[in-house]
Design a protein around this nucleic acid. Sequence first.
DNA 1: GCCGTTTTCGGCCCGACTGTTTTCAGTCG
Length: 588
Amino acid sequence: MSANATLAALFEEMAALLELTGANSFRVSAHAKVARVLGELDADVEALGREPGAIEAIEGIGEGSAGRIREWLASGSIKDLESLRKQVPPGLPEVLRVPGLGPKTARLLWKEAGVVDLATLKAKLASGELLGLPRMGEKTLAKIRESLEFMEKSGGRARLGEAAPVAESLARHLRAVKGVARVEVAGSLRRGRETIGDLDLLACGGDPAGLIEAFRSHPEVRSVLAAGETKCSVRLASGMQADLRVVDSSCFGAAWLYFTGSKEHNVRLRERAIARGLRLNEYGLFPHAEADEDSPPQSRGVAPVAAASEEEIYEALGLPWIPPELREDHGELSLRKTPTLVTVEAIRSELHAHTRASDGTMSIEEIARLARDRGFHTLAITDHSRSSVQANGLDPARLRRHLDAVREADARLDGIRLFAGSEVDILADGRLDYEDELLAELDWVVASPHVALRQDPKVATERLLAAVRHPLVHVLGHPTGRLIGSRPGLEPDIEAIAKAAAECGTALEVNANHHRLDLRDRHVRIALEAGCWIAINCDVHSPEQFDELRYGVVTARRGGLTPDRCLNCLDARTLDAWRKAKRKKVHK
DNA sequence: GCCGTTTTCGGCCCGACTGTTTTCAGTCG
């Protein structure tokens, strides 16, 4: 684990321990913020530690935390953390992860009932001895039991590609309710995060009670967690939680903004509102409350400055509309105008696809026709190379016959250009899986790591650098090889890879498969800052995988990708020229 | 603990829902 990730985990732990010792809540959230900032930091905190003042310069990290970070970098431990660990049972922080169970309750259970971890919590729930503690009635205990059960079964977040279809099914179901004007997805799904904790939907128009009734009666709903007049939370059969809010159409924009988040982005907006003498909530942007009025402005009939659309709220705050994918408090509030990010519609080619020759399910002609039907002008056929035995990789003789077949199809089919290429394995030592002589015969080379994905980061960096600098490679495919939720993959120095890729003109791939999303969002940002070309590829093996494109696009958008830096947005002639120029450039 | 178009002290985002309350604390997003 990198120093950044380790320190993020330690600050996360400190925040939890502080909560459990009953520390000031602002102190707790300050630690949690330091953890978040460290986790998302692009720069290496170890390197920053060597520059005086560099750690303190990071927004959200003050003198105290910077001191603790340096203490850890120098000694490998943090005194304050060690002392907190002595005050709290080591298993207690995991009790905080039980949904519905917060710091106050965890502390109560610990101090009053001797709960020290999930195991003792479970045992004491079973024995009935928790009943009768302050605020611990039958219903509360039943909810805790249910939450524990849920944690054991599902344990975590769903992948974007699994959550999105479920949310869309719920939205369609709600749109069929009589009188409904609008139903939209919000939350981390709208922001396009690679994993989703729960689904957020927003609706307006029609009868709120009818909407809530329709929501809780969707066939996927297993239990209802809460249902009020405007809000309903359910647990789905998949274990995921889904929330619906019903709002008035006059404040739909404020609600959509609010429930899209992120939480940190919202906090920034509210701070900005206050600085302008305004007050922002999910009902709108209002003139700030007078000192003696502490009830919400909307309940006093105060007219909002803006509420109906997100655009007018941002405008009233002196901001351009910010695409949801950028709402993470990563500096987006300093944007002067709305960036033109890449879209699914702007993608005109697929540059990484497999046929039956290796491990795909389609013939050359079938996949070519599908690509053409989707409006693509170019498709790169890139079957696996010989080392990928499990994927039926092609040896040189088979590859040459396959190239002939692709070129024959290219000549025969109208309306689509086929590149005869390969997805060539980057071997563990950085060599490619075919001789240069053969690679030179290919129109298109995607080089990807498939084996030795637990390499030391320094070795992995050298390995990928060798592929990026190879004169015959066009694209570095799924650079880290990670699989979300199941395989961490390589941890190369992405800045070094990006720098080399920019110099050599090699494109870096955002693999759109929802298990991969590799490069990930923050890597895309690093690549763009270095000046790289990006390719968004579905890595198609079967027809439905063309539909994964949107996950790749949204990931690239989160990294700030504009169409002018995206290979797949080039027109056919320019792309072909890029392909040829790429090899000439490096051959010089 | 962090931070600064009132500030180096005194703030720090805001409302819905639930359960156990007889007016509200706790949790969540």
